Simulated assay, not measured.
Amino acid sequence: MARWKPHAPERLLVAALELFEERGYEHTTVIEITERAGLTKSTFFRHFPDKREVLFGGGTMAGLLVDGIDTAPAGASPLEAVAHALDAIGRAAFTSDRREFSARRSAVVAANPELREREALKELGLIASMIDALKRRGVPDLTARVAAELGALAWKIAYERWQDTTNRDDFAELARRTLTEVQAASTAC
Rank of each mutant, 00 (worst) to 15 (best):
D70T: 03
K122V: 02
K51N: 02
P73L: 11
G75N: 12
A154L: 14
M61F: 08
R91W: 08
A148L: 12
R99Y: 15
A152M: 10
V66M: 01
L65P: 10
A111M: 01
K51M: 02
S102M: 13
G58P: 08
K135E: 12
T29H: 04
T28C: 10
A76Y: 14
G59T: 04
I31D: 15
L64H: 00
G57M: 06
E26I: 09
S129H: 07
D97K: 05
G59A: 13
T34G: 12
D97R: 02
I31A: 12
M130Q: 07
L64C: 01
K51Q: 02
V108A: 05
R36N: 13
V146M: 14
D67F: 02
E100T: 12
G24K: 00
R116G: 01
P113A: 05
T34L: 07
L121V: 12
V30T: 14
F44N: 08
E80F: 01
A62E: 12
A74D: 15
I31C: 12
D97V: 10
V54G: 06
P73W: 11
V139S: 06
T143Y: 05
G125I: 01
L55E: 04
H47S: 03
F44L: 11
V30D: 13
R99A: 14
A93K: 14
K135P: 05
A76G: 14
V109I: 15
P49I: 05
L126F: 01
R99G: 09
R98Q: 13
V139G: 07
A37Y: 10
A111V: 06
A74R: 10
V139P: 12
V82Q: 08
F48E: 04
H47L: 04
L65W: 03
A103I: 02
A148Q: 11
G75E: 15
S42D: 10
H84G: 06
P113Y: 05
L64T: 04
V139Y: 04
D141T: 15
E32M: 15
V30C: 10
I89W: 00
V82D: 09
V146P: 12
R91P: 08
I33K: 04
